[in-house]
């Protein structure tokens, strides 16, 4: 149990550094440390599929973020109503934590989950699908509609990025520069 706590505290410290550092590149690198710790935590919690996915996705999103922040570090302006904003934010977060801690009693105790749907998958997964990896069996056979919807979301994201980043003014180039 102790390794889990150590990893979680490491994640929280890395996230705090990522939030509070002034340099953008350092902040992105601290975010990478957070993702690596999260991947190790998934491995300790017996979820190897999610651990591999988290590691690879972390690498890719780190590359994209570094591409976005290169050579564009700005001075960090904290002028304006600094005190009022911080006090309001901290008050809001404390109210949120207070209400959430009250809800923790309703959750199952850590380490003893309430498995009802999954027990059916456990018993009949091998017989029904023939797949050894039960996570794969769940996302590709029992709940394949999830995967279909997720493929649709990814497709929409690719179209959205290509549309946003399209070279603008393609029509203006044909008609001439007078419209500018």
């Amino acid at each position: 149990m102790l390794d889990l706590y150590i990893l979680l505290i490491f994640i929280i410290v890395a996230a705090a550094i990522a939030v509070e550092t002034k340099d953008l590149l350092s902040s992105v690198i601290a975010l990478g440390a957070t993702g690596l710790g999260l991947s190790l935590t998934f491995l300790v919690l017996k979820a190897p599929d999610v651990a591999i996915t988290q590691l690879i996705v972390e690498i890719l999103s780190l590359i994209i973020l570094i591409r976005a922040t290169m050579k564009e570090d700005l001075p960090f302006s904290t002028s304006g109503r600094w005190l009022v904003n911080t006090v309001i934010t901290v008050c809001f977060i404390f109210v949120f934590i207070f209400t959430a801690v009250k809800c923790f009693k309703e959750l199952p105790q850590f380490g003893y989950p309430t498995i009802k749907t999954s027990s059916a998958y456990l018993k009949e997964g091998l017989k029904d699908t023939g797949a050894t990896n039960l996570v794969s069996a769940v996302i590709l056979d029992f709940r394949a509609y999830d995967t279909l919807g997720e493929a649709a979301v990814l497709f929409t994201a690719v179209i959205g990025v290509l549309t946003i980043l399209r070279r603008k003014g393609r029509k203006n180039e044909e008609t001439g520069l007078d419209n500018e």
């Binding site: 999954s118 456990l122 979301v153």
Partner: peptide, 17 residues
Amino acid sequence: DMLPQALALTSIIIGLA
């Protein structure tokens, strides 16, 4: 329990997009 793992797997990819 493997059902939350499947949901989290979907959630990670959507987060990347």
